[in-house]
Design a protein around this nucleic acid. Structure first.
Lengths: 223, 223
DNA sequence: ATTAATTTTTAGATTAATCTAAAAGTTTAG
DNA sequence: CTAAACTTTTAGATTAATCTAAAAATTAAT
């Protein structure tokens, strides 16, 4: 029962999970190669290996999807990644734009005892510093319904609940313009030409946001 | 300046540091193979690589010793190992016999920012849960003078300040007989034949300890 | 529906870390 | 001081993860 995945295997499983499969389309070799900064030939080889280990479903030229056990592994890794991010921000005073890279390493530490104790130590948080939901010990995720700010129309209101992307440059920019999770936001104007927006934030008044930014910000769906 | 060591290289550097060199004798290929649970031929190869990178001094058939930069690397790894052990014991409620293996993984996480913030979070501890000194950010270690319990003679007193070895079985045994760091100890009798001892501990009265155990326990040298 | 473009796979090498077996060097014991 | 014992190194393979180049399959375009 030498069950444990290599670091590389874990990264493939996570990437497949994050690119995401839909009933219609599996994850393609090229998409994986892009995401993992490697070459399609390399991906092709690794796919065979993961398929042999029954972590993914695979048919030649048809792309891949995670199996039950593959999903379980992915959720375990994501759980660790997000819990460590909470630790780094809440207890070591890192900023939300500084934690992704470190969590990329910490997510591979193997010890379920450690993860579960860390979870308790942190107070069993349900979201990470970017608003992403943290799977529980059994791999269950509870994600509140959300939509992109870019999908909202004039006069709609909501609360900022997450950021789609952990790019430090995006996060630093949001810091600079004082956008953070939990803020109430109201769309005051949408420009048809470039989909840029004007939005109202408490205290900060009205600010201008490009489509590039509004398409990264998640807002509560209800209300 | 691709400076960063591989996991394997780090493990070699740490093992060389821990086996320890004296002016008279370097660390031998076989000793390293033993310590790293690998074969002498493998060690021989890796030695060439580390030597090429100027992390160790090496002459064929003469064993190795760490260079200045090698020692620095070793101390960085040991600092991380011991700080994480403090975290695991003090904040996640692990026992001292459960943390070594997890710290063996955590010690390889690369981010000096992380280590230094962890150090501050922990209150800049100077010893780990086994009494081993924690190097500071500059690699300086302050170790109080100590000796082995097995080197003491009848009627000598001292305070238990450390355990030489992190073997869980040893540590669990010490737990069972209520021996822990900080206790005052007095040697009441030494048996010449097998070097076993009787010692007096506060509250616990007099207990019997085999040489195998007394040779793993560190006692203050002064007083 | 062919052809062109794109995607994916295969074939064949490469690198790091490892191994076994054998050769070479060093130490130790009579 | 030689010969046996031990240690260390070399030689040659192996495995995992990667690459480039080329072949095969699929998809898209005229």
């Amino acid at each position: 029962m030498e069950n444990s995945l290599s670091l590389t295997e874990e990264n493939y499983i996570k990437a497949i999970f994050q690119i995401g499969t839909t009933p219609e389309s599996n994850v393609s070799t090229n998409a994986l190669a892009d995401s993992l900064q490697t070459k399609p030939a390399t991906v092709s080889d690794m796919i065979k290996k993961l398929s042999y280990k029954k972590l993914i479903f695979y048919e030649k030229y048809k792309g891949v999807a995670l199996s039950e056990s593959g999903s379980k592994e992915a959720l375990k890794i994501i759980r660790k990644h997000r819990l460590w991010e909470v630790f780094l921000v809440n207890h070591l005073n890192f900023k939300w734009d500084q934690v992704h890279e470190i969590a990329e390493q910490l997510e591979h530490i193997k010890s379920s005892e450690l993860v579960n104790r860390l979870d308790d130590f942190l107070g069993n948080p349900t979201i990470d510093p970017h608003g992403d939901p943290i799977p529980d010990a059994k791999g269950r995720v509870q994600l509140g319904p959300s939509k992109l700010l870019s999908e909202m129309t004039s006069h709609e209101k909501g609360i900022i609940v997450g950021v789609k992307n952990e790019d430090p440059l995006l996060l630093q920019h949001l810091d600079k313009i004082n956008i953070r999770l939990g803020l109430q936001i109201e769309v005051t104007e949408v420009n048809d030409f470039d989909q840029s927006m004007q939005v109202k934030l408490p205290d900060l008044g009205i600010i201008f946001l490009s489509k590039k930014i509004t398409s990264q910000i998640l807002i509560t769906k209800n209300s």
